[in-house]
Design a protein around this nucleic acid. Sequence first.
DNA 1: TAACAATATAACTATACAGTTATATTAGCA
DNA 2: TGCTAATATAACTGTATAGTTATATTGTTA
Lengths: 104, 104
Amino acid sequence: MMSPEALLLVAARFKVLAEPMRLQILQVLKSGEASVNELTEAVASTQPNVSKHLRVLQDEDLVARRQVGNNAFYRISDKTVFKLCDVVCGSLKNNFEEQAAIFA
Amino acid sequence: MMSPEALLLVAARFKVLAEPMRLQILQVLKSGEASVNELTEAVASTQPNVSKHLRVLQDEDLVARRQVGNNAFYRISDKTVFKLCDVVCGSLKNNFEEQAAIFA
DNA sequence: TAACAATATAACTATACAGTTATATTAGCA
DNA sequence: TGCTAATATAACTGTATAGTTATATTGTTA
């Protein structure tokens, strides 16, 4: 049984991942480091919005920042996020298959 | 690479788990089925609040409901939630250990 | 040095939702 | 049939936050 304090931290981690835009950013970073500009284009959002999301991800130690001149490059710093996505994906897939089986 | 639609569903799943009270409820259910009253006592909340959280968990197919007379018994219906918690826990533990190592 | 480019941040708005209080619903019981 | 218990739901409030717009900051370049 986990302590309430631990559950608070776990919930906070889930909260950071509970945003499609942030998941999209992480997906882009999966294929390597990217600048804010590159990310902004890749996820089709605005620069301030992407910067804000990156801040949230960094505060949770999911991404790391590297500054070069006037550019900021971000990269994944915690690969467990992909493990988490995989587990959720598997569960969703399973649910859909069960639903489908009802009509089989 | 996951599609934006898939990311939406994954984010929704994370959102349901991003609440300490819901994680607490799931933890209690880990040791077996429980009625709303039992859950309300176990998590030290109010009955309407617990009912609402249970609804959210049920809508996401994380718990299942069984009615007996005037009582409603809930149980885990998707064990992957514990896998998810374990992965997050491991990551958090790792982060803390890295922090600690700085002072070693 | 002046203009520009890249990023971060502040202020704002709209929306979502956790918790509360009150009430509806339904089943068992005297 | 009334009374009580268990659960669900509706209405409300306060808070958190995603996205936007405007601006600050800092480095590069002409």
